[in-house]
């Protein structure tokens, strides 16, 4: 409509680019699928390897893998709890009482991007020898380290919501109407930050389920380390589980997208 002045590309250019890149990016995924369907008689495709996963006879062979899945899910839940419990009250307190500390908190939360997990793990090894002495060697303690690695993502998700909501005015309004601070927090502030908190939780789950570096080098079992282990003896199963995990993460992030795409301005 606007005659040749818009920034956007022509539909032809758009779909050529998206088509070619999309096709290139589909090759590995399709190959994974093809790889797992391979091995029928005379080169025919078969779904045997997929059905074998559910076969109770193989349960023992996959025990490690299922334990990895279980551990990763547990870690995801504990990490979400830790991150939200530490981050949300801090960010609210800073927004309301210490606006000058915002830059500091932001800096601290972004730092983990600069410290690669492989570097962090060098220093985490001695820290975890202490943690193990205090809290035992159960896998959930890893969540403390994971919380740090997801800090940048969680911070950004919550902050983008926070900067769209004037928490100072909201809390002043609620206080002036006679609400005690507990009500301000649970009835006014948190409902307005629901979107950011949910997005932070989801991105945390995705990152934790994909984490390999720290678990591997601290010798814990999670989904990713189990996958690597299985792949040594049974690459097909490893690929099947990878596909499932990718599909799961994709769905999860699609849901985040829908949550954050709904315009926050229109919320009642």
């Amino acid at each position: 409509m606007s005659a040749g002045t818009s920034v956007a590309p022509s539909p032809l250019a758009r779909w050529v680019i998206l088509g070619v890149v999309g096709l290139l990016f589909a090759v590995p995924i399709v190959s994974m699928l093809g790889f797992t369907l391979r091995g029928g008689a005379d080169g025919a495709l078969t779904i045997e390897r997929w059905t074998a996963i559910l076969d109770p006879e193989n349960a023992r062979a996959y025990r490690n893998l299922f334990q990895g899945v279980g551990n990763s899910l547990l870690l995801a839940v504990v990490t979400v709890a830790i991150v939200l419990a530490v981050l949300v009250p801090t960010m609210l307190l800073v927004a309301i009482r210490y606006p000058r500390l915002r830059r500091v908190v932001e800096f601290v939360c972004i730092v983990p991007i600069t410290i690669p997990a492989i570097v962090l793990v060098v220093g985490l090894a001695p820290v975890y020898s202490v943690v193990t002495r205090l809290a035992g060697s159960s896998v959930w303690t890893l969540a403390f380290a994971y919380g740090v690695t997801v800090l940048p993502y969680a911070y950004r998700a919550i902050q983008s919501n926070l900067s769209a909501v004037d928490v100072v005015t909201l809390s002043e309004a609620a206080r002036s109407l006679g609400a005690p601070w507990v009500s301000v927090l649970f009835r006014v502030l948190l409902p307005n930050l629901r979107r950011g908190i949910l997005a932070a939780a989801f991105i945390t789950v995705a990152v934790v389920l994909g984490e390999f570096t720290i678990a591997s080098l601290l010798n814990r079992v999670n989904l990713q380390t189990a996958l690597v282990q299985v792949s040594r003896s049974d690459p097909y199963t490893a690929v099947i589980f990878s596909l499932l995990a990718l599909a799961f993460a994709f769905t999860l992030l699609l849901v985040i997208g829908r949550i954050t795409a709904a315009r926050p301005r229109r919320t009642p």
């Binding site: 590995p28 995924i29 190959s31 994974m32 093809g34 790889f35 797992t36 995705a206 990152v207 389920l209 994909g210 984490e211 390999f212 990713q224 996958l227 690597v228 792949s231 690459p235 490893a238 690929v239 990878s242 995990a245 990718l246 993460a249």
Partner: peptide
């Protein structure tokens, strides 16, 4: 999220 799984994708 990819990490390990991307390696498998390229092995496959």
């Amino acid at each position: 999220f990819g990490g390990v799984m991307l390696a498998f994708a390229f092995i496959a």
